[in-house]
Write a protein that binds this DNA or RNA. Structure first.
Lengths: 227, 227
DNA sequence: CGACCATTTGATATGGATCAAGCGATGTGG
DNA sequence: CCACATCGCTTGATCCATATCAAATGGTCG
């Protein structure tokens, strides 16, 4: 399947580490001599599909990734967004419970799951890191369910604060995803997301110099909304 | 804190095993000589609170438990329900990320987290089970977020199927929780839950011989709705 | 310039929330 | 044993937040 230039994870981590923001995930593979392959994906390319065998574990090097599930009627629920340094696609079972796609042109480090698992069996600390990784995902999933019972305005405010935290380059946020992605993450429609943003702009809480660029002028107002 | 009759987990597991339904969780503590205490809780009693130190891990022996979080405005989101055999309250961090209460009069096995963690550090298989437990919770949390984007009817249908699966005593389900609990789990109001149930009853998909007892007459219809 | 796509804005519809009342079971004190 | 309070649940009427439908705007690329 992946017959590309192999690289040690140490090397690739260094690449990832040059990214601007602090990684949200554990430095899972640091200081390990696992063999991995850096794979390029173009915008909207599928990285893996739901219920495909989960033979690999992935780490974003550049770009951004979304994981999602779809209902029979076509509605899509985005589970999470991943940015450089984040690990995704780690499953305990034999198959993926969601699909993954590149949001923008991205490079992703791909490692055989069996190699990671074998390593964990020999080294308890690695096993602990895997557990930690899953626990963080759980934490995020639980926050996500809390988000979905809030009002539209609150969801958008929460989203902006979350993005700002992950992409903390001052008060400006450069979003890698479309309004449709945001809507599918928040359980809203693009129209509602757009309206809430204009509303926040009207209240001078944010500025929208470009549709993908958002400046948070009044974080405390967002936090207050956040509920 | 817990100065009650201690018992080995083996003994207590046997008690739990006499329960009617298959356990939803890993038999985490089986075949381990951990010391634990069986504690009784009356209906609506708090077992632990959000952001309290997570010094213990819990397992339902009898009764039922709910975990939840509340927003500032008072709305409550129930994360999950736990029945005999289920483990809850296991955290990776130092404090609980949600609160837990007894839904009905219940007995809960309480074990020091440090004991479990110490054991996991010595035995890789135990560590694997802890990871497995967290992974299952993650799986459930992700299903929960999918649920929250469905229509009210679909949410109720999904809920009934889920309960039937966990309480598989034929086609009848004896619910331990109130309509308010169900509503807070599904992100709906009690009125809407009630209406959806009467609607399903009208369509001869379910029967409601008592408010807490539900008979599934037409599972395939529920599955079809489920979306 | 023109085609295409993402986004915004406007008008209207609707599913579920809210407000309000009634009902049935359970328990308690007289 | 019955009157009555309480609590959980259902049902009805109305309202409102968000979805839906539709069109206009703006940015990007050939």
């Amino acid at each position: 399947m992946f017959t590309r230039t192999a690289a040690t994870l140490g090397q690739l981590n260094r690449n990832a580490e040059t990214g601007k923001r602090p990684s949200y995930s554990q430095p899972l593979f640091d200081c390990i001599e696992l063999q991995g392959a850096a794979m390029p994906f173009e915008r909207n390319a599928e990285i893996f599909g739901e219920s495909e065998p989960a033979d690999y574990v992935y780490k974003v090097l550049t770009g951004a990734v979304r994981t999602y599930r779809v209902l029979n009627d076509g509605r899509r629920q985005i589970s999470d967004f991943y940015v450089p340094g984040d690990v995704f696609g780690l499953e305990l079972g034999e198959e993926h419970s969601c699909s993954a796609e590149a949001i923008a042109a991205s490079t992703v480090l791909v490692v055989r799951r069996s190699a990671v698992v074998a390593l964990a069996e020999r080294d308890g600390r690695i096993a602990g890191r895997l557990w930690n990784l899953t626990a963080r995902q759980l934490q995020r999933a639980q926050n996500h369910t809390l988000l979905l019972i809030k009002s539209a305005q609150q969801r958008v405010a929460s989203f902006l604060l979350e993005m700002a935290e992950r992409y903390s380059s001052g008060s400006a946020v450069e979003l890698p995803m479309t309004r449709q992605d945001i809507a599918d993450y928040l359980g809203l429609t693009i129209e509602t997301v757009s309206r809430m943003l204009t509303q926040l702009e009207g209240a001078a809480t944010i500025e929208l110099p470009a549709s993908r660029r958002i400046v948070l002028c009044n974080r405390s107002a967002l936090t207050r909304l956040n509920s």
